[in-house]
């Protein structure tokens, strides 16, 4: 009962935060609200007994993503470009409403929360639960699944993170990789990159 209440309150806060983000034109405030949104999601995951996911959401969503957004804003403007509100475009409203209803209709096919007959719980999960204490012998089953059973997936995830860092370095990293902070020096495709 109390858990249901908690979930309802958290979901209401989530919806309120999302609406506030849409309505704000100050982007700094919007970024802070996104951080709160992530923190609320993390609490929701925790209520749903997924501490590993909650952990990641809190650290990445509320922590790193907020800092990265803020540094981006310090490079760009912190105000949204105000577009004059145009009224009388019912087509857009229809498209949004139909898409939303279609998505909501799609969720009706999903198995209920915690349904033991759900495909996710009846496919390989029983094998993980029965075999992993004996075959891998690690208390945290999530770790054995992520690092061992699904080790190849996790390798791919690490490669994705590495690629993201590589992309950012290649696109923006010239200025700090050259020791001097001269504006023109950073443009050159020089050998100073490997200097440090």
């Amino acid at each position: 009962m109390i858990e249901h209440l908690l979930v309802v309150v958290l979901l209401a806060f989530l919806a309120a935060t999302a609406i506030a983000v849409i309505r704000l034109s100050n982007l700094y405030a919007a970024v802070m609200l996104f951080g709160i949104y992530s923190l609320l999601s993390a609490s929701l995951f925790l209520v749903m007994d997924a501490p590993d996911v909650a952990f990641t959401e809190a650290a990445v969503g509320a922590g790193i993503a907020t800092v990265l957004m803020l540094t981006t804003l310090s490079l760009a403007s912190d105000r949204e470009n105000e577009k004059p509100l145009r009224r009388g475009q019912p087509l857009k409203l229809v498209v949004v409403a139909v898409t939303g209803l279609a998505l909501a209709w799609g969720t009706l096919d999903l198995p209920g929360y915690g349904d033991p007959d759900a495909p996710a719980h009846s496919h390989v999960a029983p094998r993980y639960i029965e075999d992993s204490p004996r075959a891998i012998g690690i208390d945290n089953m999530v770790t054995s699944i992520l690092a061992s059973y699904r080790g190849f997936d996790t390798l791919g995830e690490v490669a994705v993170i590495f690629t993201a860092g590589l992309g950012v370095m290649l696109l923006l990293g010239r200025t700090i990789s050259s020791g001097s902070r001269s504006k023109s020096g950073g443009r050159k495709h020089g050998g100073s990159k490997s200097g440090d």
């Binding site: 790193i64 540094t71 981006t72 310090s74 490079l75 590495f162 860092g165 950012v168 200025t175």
Partner: peptide, 24 residues
């Protein structure tokens, strides 16, 4: 350990690249 090393260094690198951009 490998995951931790890569994630730490990529996160710090992305941040410092953005922050360095601001100074330039």
């Amino acid at each position: 350990v490998g995951v931790g090393l890569t994630v730490t260094s990529v996160m710090v690198t992305i941040f410092s690249v953005f922050a360095g951009r601001r100074q330039a």
